[in-house]
């Protein structure tokens, strides 16, 4: 595989995939420990009606209205879950199930009832993303990395994902102590004067931001998988939170990179002709890493030990 082929066709999708994976895995660590792991699942379902509504309002598929629609839908779903949980005194899991299925159903119905034949907007796209199409047309090879003209033609998803990833990392870094303390001992955190509700809410907000940004670029399967699998695998490898976060980044990078390569080139090695879904493959690889750690991870221990 030469640079002239790899750089324009595979480098940017791979980087975007890796950045999306890391942006989701970072907050995923805390969600996992707080037993809110399925929030990523819920968010990635509810963004569909937001995106469809944004399309209905603006009539085009442009990034910002879509992101605002998706973010708004995520926010509404969090509020709805909270309202149903409190008003109806229903356990959080069931409240979540009610809200995300309903909003997704609403999104599908809206989508079916509107004419989207002129644009690329359908449920499959929302699920699988379009990682493979985020190519860098201006690149001619490795030397293009130093060429300002070619760099200007980088897909905008790359910059956006990099910024999101950076923002998530900064949030985790700045609020490391409060996040850690309120995750492991909420009572103690309250006693020392931390506003645990606010911390929990901002964690969910940051996760939603990462999910929405990643969703736009890579589809919802990667989002759900990356919120859970790398942190879960990391949890089976270490007891320390710092190490867990570090390992989760490693696993996320590994899944995204390896998954993309396997999807793009695996079928060719097996004698096939067409590539398979990169998003699906990345999720599969992340599942394999989790399976490996579940069998040999040093701290995999059961609930007893």
């Amino acid at each position: 595989m030469s640079g002239a082929e790899f750089v324009p066709l595979s480098l940017t999708p791979m980087l975007i995939g890796i950045l999306a994976a890391i942006a989701c895995a970072l907050p995923g660590n805390f969600l996992l420990l707080r037993r809110q792991a399925l929030i990523g699942d819920a968010i990635s379902h509810v963004v569909l009606p937001g995106i469809v509504l944004a399309f209905l309002v603006t009539g085009t598929i442009t990034t910002w209205p879509m992101m605002i629609g998706a973010g708004g839908a995520a926010l509404i779903s969090v509020l709805l879950i909270e309202a149903i949980r409190r008003l109806g005194r229903i356990e959080p899991g069931a409240a979540m199930g009610v809200v995300f299925t309903t909003m997704f159903a609403g999104g599908v119905l809206l989508l079916e009832r509107t004419d989207t034949s002129s644009v690329h907007l359908d449920v499959e796209h929302a699920l699988m993303g379009n990682l493979e199409s985020l190519i860098w047309l201006d690149a001619r090879g490795w030397q293009s990395l130093l060429d300002p003209v070619a760099l200007a033609g980088l897909p905008s998803e790359l910059t956006r994902m990099a910024l999101t990833c950076l923002a998530v990392a900064i949030f985790i870094g700045l609020f490391w102590r409060p996040l850690k303390i309120s995750t492991f001992d909420e009572g103690f955190a309250q006693v020392v004067g931390m506003r645990t509700n606010l911390i929990g809410l901002s964690l969910v907000a940051v996760s939603a931001m990462a999910a929405v940004a990643a969703f736009d670029a890579v589809g919802s399967i990667i989002v759900i998988a990356m919120f859970i699998c790398p942190p879960a695998a990391a949890r089976l490898v270490t007891n320390r939170l710092v190490a867990q976060v570090g390992w989760s980044v490693v696993f996320a990078t590994l899944s995204a990179g390896l998954g993309y390569v396997l999807a793009g080139y695996g079928p060719l090695w097996l004698g096939g002709q067409d590539s398979v879904s990169a998003a699906g493959m990345i999720a599969t690889v992340s599942g394999l890493t989790l399976a490996v750690t579940a069998f040999i991870g040093p701290t995999r221990g059961g609930q007893q030990g």
Binding site: F227, I228, A232, R235
Partner: peptide
Amino acid sequence: RNTRLAEDSAIGAVLSVFFGFGIVLLT
């Protein structure tokens, strides 16, 4: 049962990985 992961993490992991693999098969 056999790892320290809580049920919700296990649900999320199985859900996303199986679904992802299913999408690979569909392609």
